[in-house]
Amino acid sequence: MNGGAQVKAWRPGISGVVEVLHAYFPSHAYPSHTHDAWTVLIVDEGVVRYDLDHREHGLAQSQVSLLPPHVPHDGRSVHPSGFRKRVLYLEPSRLGPGLVGAAVDRPEYVDPVLRRRIHQLHDVLADGRESLESQSRLALIEERLQQHLRRQVTAPPDPRDPTVATRLREVLDGHLPEGIGLEEAALLVHAHPTHLVRAFTREYGLPPHRYLTGRRVDLARRYLLEGRPPAEVATLAGFYDQSHLTRHFRRMLGVTPGQFVRP
């Protein structure tokens, strides 16, 4: 590996993502190679040039690149200062084998909404603790990628579905404090995960993961007012540890758990 390169790679605890890669390459150039996964790539610094199936492409910071599985590609920096990138590697079944040709024909998208969602998912995966949020964000990303691949120009169906939203709320309320994964919730509600997220968000004005976090903060408040210490409250309310509780508590109420009960 070239001197100065910085690489962080891990497999997150979320179904469908086989690897996450954050890297800075000041001079490294990838030789031609393939992956057995869909490669969702964004560039944070620099510009990348690559050949996909013997055709040259470029990726700037405003774009998203989707490279299909089993199709040769390489990669190199356009500028001498190198490039910084973040990558999601998705299982082949997540987008479907019938869409590979569309990705070969057009692997880059100028889509600010998609890029922002990918950025947000990376932040959640780097934290490693918000499983429902990461699953929800991944579902919306996959849906938007599929829309690009299928060249859908018509508007998506209206996601309003109060019955589904209400059932999901009941499932979330019934799984405090331990929480529940998006796919498991979808099976219980009998709805597609993406439709579940959209219907809930449209009905209640916030996504399921944020609702669940708010309910956990409410639960933590009750335990704090009973006189329990914050470290114990964090576990009882479904947070990973006291720092996890404090971060969300401060975001919700503007004070730490200790300040909340301070005389």
Rank of each mutant, 00 (worst) to 15 (best):
D241M: 13
D158M: 05
D44P: 03
V20G: 14
N2K: 10
G205W: 05
V18E: 15
P112H: 13
E203L: 03
Y211I: 08
G179S: 08
R115C: 07
R250L: 06
F200M: 03
L21Y: 13
W10T: 07
I42H: 03
A139W: 06
D36R: 14
A5W: 00
L176G: 02
V87M: 08
F249N: 04
L67A: 12
Q152S: 08
G174N: 05
A234H: 02
P26C: 03
P177Y: 06
T34F: 08
P68R: 12
D161F: 02
E170A: 15
M1Y: 10
T235N: 09
L132R: 00
L219T: 07
A237S: 13
E183Y: 14
T213L: 06
V18C: 12
Q135R: 14
Y30S: 02
E45I: 11
E108P: 11
R247A: 14
Q146T: 14
V113L: 15
R202H: 14
T154P: 00
F200L: 04
A103L: 11
Q259W: 10
S131Y: 13
I14D: 06
R210Y: 04
G16M: 03
R210W: 05
A234N: 02
P263I: 11
T246I: 09
V40L: 08
H244A: 04
K8E: 15
T163Q: 15
R215M: 07
G174E: 04
E19D: 03
P230D: 06
W38P: 02
H192K: 12
A186D: 01
S15Q: 15
D74T: 03
V48R: 10
G46T: 13
Y30D: 01
R167Y: 13
S243L: 12
A234D: 01
Y211H: 02
V197C: 03
T201Y: 07
P80G: 00
E133R: 15
P12V: 02
V197G: 05
W10Q: 09
A23D: 07
H175N: 00
P107G: 08
P156W: 04
S77N: 01
P31I: 04
V261Q: 02
G82V: 02
K85W: 02
G179H: 03
K8Y: 13
P159E: 06
L140N: 12
V40M: 07
R160K: 07
Q146H: 11
L90N: 11
E19M: 00
E170G: 11
Q63R: 15
M1F: 12
L206C: 12
Q259I: 11
Y50P: 00
T194Q: 14
P72A: 04
A199R: 00
R210V: 07
L125P: 10
T246H: 12
G128F: 03
Y50A: 05
Y24H: 13
L182I: 02
H175P: 02
R215Y: 10
L99P: 08
W10R: 06
E184F: 03
S15N: 13
V261C: 03
P156E: 04
I180C: 06
E133N: 12
G4W: 04
